[in-house]
Simulated scan of single mutants.
Amino acid sequence: MTRFAILLGGELTVTARLRGQIAGARLIAADSGMMHAAALGVVPELWVGDFDSAGSELAVQYRDVPRETFPAEKDATDGAIAVAEAIRRGASELLLLGGLGGQSDHTVGLLGQSLGLARQGVACFLSSGTEEAWPLIPGRLRVELPAETRLSVVPFSDLAGLSLAGVKWPLANRDVALGSTLTLSNVALGPVEIVLRAGHGIAIAYPPLAPDE
Rank of each mutant, 00 (worst) to 15 (best):
E144G: 15
G9S: 05
L164Y: 04
D105S: 13
A37Y: 04
N186P: 11
Q61Y: 09
V153S: 07
A54K: 03
G79K: 11
G121R: 13
A133W: 02
S92F: 12
I202R: 01
P211H: 09
S53F: 07
V195M: 13
G201S: 08
L58W: 04
E144Y: 14
V60E: 12
G49K: 09
S92P: 10
A38R: 08
G79N: 12
A82Q: 07
M34G: 05
L12H: 01
T130I: 12
N173T: 09
I204S: 01
A160C: 08
V122A: 15
D31T: 10
V108A: 07
V42F: 14
R67L: 06
G109F: 10
P208H: 07
R19W: 04
M1G: 09
L189M: 11
A133H: 05
T2F: 11
L136E: 03
A38C: 06
D64P: 04
A203P: 00
G55S: 15
V83I: 15
A210T: 05
T107I: 09
A25K: 02
Q61D: 09
A160L: 10
A172M: 13
I81E: 00
E144M: 12
A38H: 15
S163V: 06
L209M: 14
A76P: 08
E45I: 13
F70D: 00
A198Q: 09
E57K: 14
A80L: 11
G20I: 11
F125G: 01
S163L: 08
A188I: 06
A133L: 05
L8D: 00
S104D: 06
F70L: 10
G55E: 15
R140H: 10
K74H: 07
R142P: 10
R26Q: 11
V154E: 03
V143S: 01
G112Q: 11
A147I: 07
L111Y: 15
L96Y: 13
G109C: 13
R26Y: 03
A210V: 02
D105N: 12
V65N: 08
S32Q: 11
R67P: 05
A198L: 06
E213M: 05
I202M: 11
E85G: 02
P191G: 13
H36V: 14
R150H: 06
G55M: 14
S185C: 14
S152P: 08
A23C: 10
F125P: 01
G161V: 07
G179C: 07
T69H: 14
G161D: 08
A118V: 03
A205H: 02
V167N: 00
K74P: 05
G90A: 12
A91M: 11
D158P: 14
P135F: 04
G20K: 11
L209Y: 07
M1L: 15
D175S: 15
K168M: 14
G102S: 05
D31A: 12
D31I: 04
L184H: 06
L117N: 01
L209A: 12
A91R: 09
A210C: 11
A188K: 05
V167L: 03
N173G: 13
V65T: 12
K168P: 10
L189V: 01
F4Y: 14
Q61K: 14
S53G: 12
A82M: 06
A118T: 03
W134H: 09
P155F: 06
D50R: 01
V195L: 06
L18V: 01
